[in-house]
Simulated assay, not measured.
Amino acid sequence: MRPVACGACGNQVLCEKFSPAHTQVQWTGDAAEACPRIRARVAAGELSARVRSCDALRESIARAVEDGALTVDGTRESEQAGGRYATVGVTDG
């Protein structure tokens, strides 16, 4: 898994691309506090565990794929960032 930082808020997640349409994302435990978009949805009453993604983060992941920092097959070597993560499978639409 590769660390990817959101270009909008800097929140870091771990990602792996298994195909162009399937991204595995491990969110940090404090994503609801670090990401203003997720924080706003939680403040509106949505459970943080139900917030599957953020448009800015999706764009950052797509950019990491385009730049070659995150490969679609997920085999590129990487160092994992420390911290607590929750795994979420995201199907790109």
Rank of each mutant, 00 (worst) to 15 (best):
P20R: 01
V72I: 11
G74F: 00
A49Q: 08
V51P: 09
G7E: 01
P3C: 05
T71E: 01
L57A: 10
S48V: 15
R50L: 14
L47Y: 09
C35K: 10
V42G: 13
A43T: 13
R37P: 07
S60W: 04
Y85A: 05
N11D: 03
L47E: 14
A49D: 08
D73Q: 02
T87Q: 05
A62G: 14
E16Q: 08
R37H: 14
S53I: 04
I38V: 14
A32P: 14
R63D: 13
Y85W: 04
A31N: 09
G89T: 02
A62N: 10
V25C: 12
D30P: 09
E16F: 04
H22C: 09
C15K: 02
C15F: 05
T23Y: 06
R50C: 15
S78Y: 07
L70W: 01
R84L: 11
V13G: 03
V88T: 13
Q12N: 06
R37C: 15
G89R: 05
Q80P: 10
R63T: 14
G7W: 04
A21N: 13
A5F: 05
A31M: 12
T23M: 04
D73V: 02
A34H: 15
P20G: 06
E16A: 15
I38R: 01
I38E: 10
G74N: 00
G82S: 11
P36G: 10
R52N: 06
R37N: 14
V13Q: 03
A49C: 11
P20V: 00
R76L: 15
R2M: 08
G83M: 05
L70Y: 01
D73Y: 00
A43E: 15
P20C: 02
D73H: 06
R50H: 11
C6F: 07
E79F: 07
E66A: 14
E46P: 09
C35T: 06
E16M: 04
G83E: 07
D30A: 14
A21M: 07
D67M: 10
C15S: 10
H22V: 07
A40T: 01
A81C: 05
I38A: 07
N11F: 13
C6G: 05
V51H: 12
G74T: 00
Q24C: 03
I38T: 12
R2F: 03
G29F: 10
A8M: 03
A31W: 09
I38Y: 06
R37Y: 12
Q12T: 13
C35A: 05
I61F: 01
C9I: 04
V72P: 10
S60Q: 07
W27K: 11
G68W: 02
G74K: 08
V4K: 02
G68K: 02
A8N: 11
G45Y: 00
G89H: 02
T28H: 14
V13K: 04
G68H: 05
A31I: 15
P36V: 12
G45P: 13
